[in-house]
């Protein structure tokens, strides 16, 4: 495991090998953050690239007050949200009531026949969910951040995140149980 402080110091000395090392080390984390926020693979790659350019530009501001991974994930989340807003790919909900009224729509028999793999089905279901649900599901389960860390990354209060996580998982469990 590379020492975070040493790596950051080398990047700040304009060592591009160290920067490449940093990208290799954190690219999976960034991809996971972005993975369910952006639905298109080309968008994901563009966002990831932009994230690392921002990381390089702002690394001198990183004061080791949090883990480097949390700091990079915050940049990744903000970049993805800005990208979605900028290209108006979908609305970004602000109002919790909008989320409470979310339910999955029923698929047609043809659509159901086309779904062979349950993992792919789950992925498609998550992509249909509102942005905040997708964010908390991904950061909690895939990136394995704690709710406190997710609060730091997204700025959403921990209690709200907990309720989003509960409801998102409940909706998915119910939908998957109907599908089986």
């Amino acid at each position: 495991m590379v020492d975070e402080r040493e790596l950051v110091a080398r990047v700040l000395r304009q060592d591009y090998n160290a920067f490449e090392e940093l990208v290799n080390q954190y690219q999976q984390l960034v991809l996971y953050v972005v993975f369910r926020l952006a639905k298109n693979q080309q968008d994901r790659e563009d966002i990831c690239q932009e994230v690392f350019i921002k990381v390089h530009k702002n690394l001198h501001r990183f004061a080791f007050e949090s883990k480097l991974s949390t700091w990079i994930a915050t940049i990744a989340y903000q970049t993805a949200i800005n990208y979605i807003k900028k290209f108006r790919r979908e609305p970004v909900p602000n109002e919790p009531l909008e989320l409470d009224s979310f339910y999955f729509t029923e698929e047609t028999p043809e659509q159901l026949l086309g779904i062979q793999d349950e993992r792919e089905y789950l992925h498609q279901l998550i992509l249909q969910m509102p942005l905040h649900y997708r964010t908390v599901l991904t950061l909690y389960h895939l990136n394995e951040f704690s709710l406190a860390e997710i609060q730091g990354i997204t700025g959403i209060p921990e209690g709200t995140l907990k309720s989003y996580l509960f409801r998102a998982r409940q909706l998915l469990k119910t939908k998957l149980s109907q599908h089986r």
Binding site: F35, Q49, H123
Partner: peptide, 20 residues
């Protein structure tokens, strides 16, 4: 268990070098 399964898609080979 499914939520914790990593996605099958990834970033292209040589992504870090491209950013550099």
């Amino acid at each position: 268990s499914q939520l914790e399964t990593p996605p099958t898609v990834g970033l292209p080979y040589g992504f870090a070098r491209r950013v550099r």
